[in-house]
């Protein structure tokens, strides 16, 4: 939340910081809060706008995250972690170069995204781990409230049996199971994004919106690519 005192403190900090930059500090300038700009809000086309008063500044922040956003982030972390468990097997068992490359790319992006999600949750004082027994509002998932390899099960995630089959597979059979499993896994992430966007009030915050869109686009692209590889090795 914005308020006058923190804003003033920030401006003061900024002034100090710029002076400390050295060099051309004398020509630097910072607007003082007292003569800050007027704030207006236009209306819809054809409608009048209005001014924001100083007292309303607290309200400028606008939409914030919702419970559904938190559950989405908390749920996508174990989802991504299972992808990492799967790609870890590729190093030992995959026989197709295309599968190896695919897995390496996924490992980097899924790891980066786990970091992004964890940071997002911490910044908002939310637990990074999904609370036990909470399926993140994923209604219709009843009965799936369990763990596989220490991870909460989310849509599309491989079952314990599927993970075991993948772990024991060798040769082209491994490559095939990996691709089929990862397609199923990614499709689950895409479904999670769709659920998020269909939830009232969800994905309104910019970071969540961008992240959900990225997951959607990236994983769809990888599904298309994996289908292509699958056709070649079948």
């Amino acid at each position: 939340m914005l308020n006058r005192s923190t804003t003033t403190a920030l401006m003061a900090l900024a002034t100090g910081a710029l002076t400390a930059c050295g060099g051309s500090s004398s020509s630097m300038s910072t607007p003082s809060p007292s003569d800050g700009p007027r704030i207006v809000q236009p209306g819809a086309p054809g409608q009048n706008g209005r001014s924001f008063s100083t007292e309303e500044l607290d309200n400028v922040e606008g939409v914030t995250f919702t419970e559904a956003d938190v559950r989405f982030m908390q749920g996508m972390i174990p989802h991504h972690q299972q992808a990492l468990q799967m790609t870890a097997l590729v190093k030992q068992h995959a026989t197709t170069d295309a599968v190896r490359q695919m897995a390496l790319r996924m490992e980097i992006s899924q790891r980066d995204e786990i970091e992004l999600m964890s940071t997002w949750l911490r910044e908002r004082d939310q637990p990074v781990e999904m609370p036990m027994g909470d399926m993140g509002g994923m209604s219709g998932m009843g009965g799936m409230n369990h763990m596989v390899n220490g991870l909460h099960v989310m849509p599309g995630m491989l079952t314990a049996e599927q993970m075991e089959a993948l772990t024991n597979a060798r040769g082209l059979e491994f490559d095939r199971l990996f691709l089929e499993g990862m397609i199923q896994h990614h499709q689950g992430a895409i479904d999670m994004v769709a659920t998020l966007f269909n939830t009232s009030g969800a994905a309104q915050e910019s970071t969540v919106f961008k992240f959900a869109e990225d997951v959607d686009a990236d994983q769809q692209m990888e599904i298309d690519r994996m289908r292509g590889i699958l056709e070649q090795i079948r």
Binding site: L2, A9, M11, A14, S24, M28, F52, T207
Partner: peptide
């Protein structure tokens, strides 16, 4: 030469989270 550096205006940043995507 850096001539000026002005922070974002009031209402257009979150003082506790500089990287707030909104």
């Amino acid at each position: 030469e850096l001539l000026a550096a002005i922070p974002r205006a009031e209402g257009f940043f979150n003082p506790t989270t500089p990287a707030d995507g909104r």
